[in-house]
Nucleic acid binder design. Sequence first.
RNA 1: AGGACCAUAGCUCAGUUGGUUAGAGCGCCACGUUGACAUCGUGGAGGUCGGCGGUUCAAAUCCGCCUGGUCCUACCA
Length: 953
Amino acid sequence: MEKTYQPEQIEIRWYERWEADGRFAPSGEGEPFSIMIPPPNVTGSLHMGHAFQDTIMDTLTRWKRMQGRNTLWQVGTDHAGIATQMLVERKVAAEEGKTRHDLGREAFIDKVWEWKHESGDHITRQLRRMGASVDWSRERFTMDEGFYKAVQEVFVCLHEEGLIYRGKRLVNWDPTLHTAISDLEVENRDQQGSFWHFRYPLADGVTTDDGKDYLVVATTRPETLLGDTGVAVNPADPRYASLVGKFIELPLVGRRIPIVADEHADMEKGSGCVKITPAHDFNDYEVGKRQDHMLINVFSKDAAILERAEVYNFKGQPQPDVDPTLPAMYAGLDRFEARKQIVADMDALGLLEQVEAVNNTLPYGDRSGDVIEPLLTDQWFVAVESLAKPAIEAVENGDIQFVPKNYENMYFAWMRDLQDWCISRQLWWGHRIPAWYDAEGNIFVARTEQEAREKHGLGADVTLTQDEDVLDTWFSSGLWTFGTLGWPEKTPELETFHPSSVLVTGFDIIFFWVARMIMLTLKFTDEVPFKTVYVHGLVRDAQGQKMSKSKGNVIDPIDLIDGIEIETLVEKRTGNMMQPQKAKAIAKATRQEFDGGIEAHGTDALRFTFLSQATTGRDIKFDMSRLDGYRNFCNKLWNASRYVLMNAEGEDCGAEFDNDKSSEVELSLADRWIISQLQKTEAQVTKAMEEYRFDHASQALYEFVWNEYCDWYLELSKPVLWDAEANDAAKRGTRRTLVRVLEAILRLAHPMMPYISEEIWQRVAPMAGTFKGTNDSIMVQPWPQAEQAKVDEQATLDIEWLKGVIIAVRNIRAEMNIVPGKPLDVMLAKGRPEDQSRLESNRLFLSKLAKLESVTWLANPDDAPLCATQLVGEMEVLVPMADLIDKDVELKRLVKEIDKQDKLIGGIEKKLGNEGFLAKAPEAVVEKERGKLKDFQAARKLLLEQHEKIQAL
RNA sequence: AGGACCAUAGCUCAGUUGGUUAGAGCGCCACGUUGACAUCGUGGAGGUCGGCGGUUCAAAUCCGCCUGGUCCUACCA
């Protein structure tokens, strides 16, 4: 073995080997366990969030596989409608100077497929680097033929049931992308805005009670004035009671609009009068509906002012009787231009009463960054109410459980206030909506045009055109758990692996995806999509900032694995930016944070870091120093293995002797102890994994490997192995323990650190007798199970004693500035009989580990010469110091120690002096305190004696 | 405005049903390298558990209020 751990030499090799050996496919045996990967964007690349998520999924998958479950980790990607289309549009623009419209729909779609083929395996390659044990043979893409079939089936069925409908409704419209987006794709940002107060003249010579001939309405969006259909006042507002039923003459437009009473108007706010614009505001839409107003749309798809308004009733029917005339001077003006102009014109008319500065929030499209406009358009919707009910129940009754549990509240809150879901998108890349129209605009929904004709008896003479729009990507990913398994066919995979066992996902897409999956899956399979939802937090940068390309603080997980030069990193972060003006600052910050670039750490160290930070659903600040630390841990494990191999390879490791009582194999105290500790660790790690506490699982492993196996057991093995006089059975016992415990460690580690564990296991397993032929792999070994019978409490106590004495001697060395290598003569005094017997049976270990010349039991403590002392329980560890002792230093140390004991004693005495405590605390607690008091007092007494002795010098 | 979550060592975080001498890693200080590992070893310093109040014999842990932070939902006519 190499002297240091070098991940790059082993990782790719092992992944290729596993894949070639078909290790990732379900075994076909055992109780099924399945995880469906949240499909990443097919043309995307792996970011830290993916890497984190994939680590968790792979750890669960490998763990369950080792537990003998029939394990499927289903892999695949989604087509990411808007994101991919935008990317290809930009690419086409850059390369050919053309828009998608120049190319036409078909040619453009070809371009997207080309791009998919070109870049589509990037993310899957990265998944492989992460060690993901996904079943590549079952890889799915949402735009695959088979998956499309599932999408059509669902659409048609829902439509037949009346749960999908088409309607003219207000949607969040992205004027840049020219498509509807869901409210989840809208980002609300705070900003400084203006609040314009306008005077709306009363028609027909009417005046207010206080004699004014106008009402004041305020708005943050003056340009919508053109679409006003009325002014609302609160029905209980005495100020305007006399005006209800009267009219306003809408300025600039000249339209007569009614004053209506509606509870939407808040008497406390502003003047108490609200302008109503049903076609441009979600609240006003509701008011307009109640008041039987028209919908007057004044915006084009670009959010520019129309020449003539479009007028509809609330059924979406055009209203030719309403005069659609709009002022000519605004026609074609962009909404923000129009706003300026309208404000200026109102001012000129003396109708601008005041402009107030306000803090408000504005909706932005998370893709385009443009301000979202509520716009009246024809869209397809899913009526979610009847779907939501069972979806809520599934979580309420525990069929689906969230981990951590508090996310269930977030889910309920959203589900109980659900709007119908707009599923059509005005894009080209996606699942085309399976609906056809005849010349009159009649709608025929079917799986194919052929079916549409047959179903509705349409002759060949009827021209049908398919709906131009595509479906929201989340509509198709909502079918992911069962669509990937072959639905609507009744496949054996569907039978076996659905419902899936766990969904691992970020909280940010609970609404987007999780909720919709639950609704659609229950509807179409009568099963939940998954039994558990493990929700993890966001991976943030070291400062706690969200990682984003525009901030220039993203880290490519692959760069943490392979390392990256600083110049390459700067280039990567500042190249191809949307906002190039930020490049300089980003370069500077990057150079500051990653001075010498990033070193290679390997996949296992990265995975272990993620796991150790995976606490209960909170965000994680990615910490480079922890990554360093876990790479060191890999190295530690590597070197411990090196030691084991050096001492065991080619030697008799007793693999064939299974009976520990056999005279052929003799186990030392240390052997029994480490075996005992291993059982506890196995139990701990398993429990932690069951509870999704990967931080606890990784920590339990780390502590056992480093602080017990390496720090103590390996050291304790040396005296046995290097003792020329030790018998063969003892050596065999120690070698066997070294090897078997290491082999178990590797199996415990494997789900978390697949590569290093496999690499070492290949060398260790043959000696441990667990290797079954040349093609064997740790991936299919049984998960370690704690055996209660091997827990040896006596051995634990004995080793604790031994460690205590060794540490006491080390302490004395440090206190007295004695070099670590100098052999010492040590005496043990006071204490109990078992202390003496422990000394006799551990003399060898003690001498070697504490580097002692001699160690003797002092029957009469008064015989002790002048010594430095330490306490182990009630026993004193004495190192004769003769004239070497520094009186002042030692006195000071003792005083400090005595003070410490005094404080402890004081605390307990106070407790025990409290009658309430004695009366009400459980007896066991009281007893424990009494015991502690006794110990502390005994320690204090010894320290005091020692102090007096030295004082007397 | 409503809600959720968070606040523990210089940093990143654990701390299960109240009873621990409040822990880990990293960092820091001192010492140390012939026999697995300097990606290391040994020893050490460092915390009034955000603040105030309450419940209790006992609070980092339970309750209330406050402060600071993150996020979500709503509103902003």
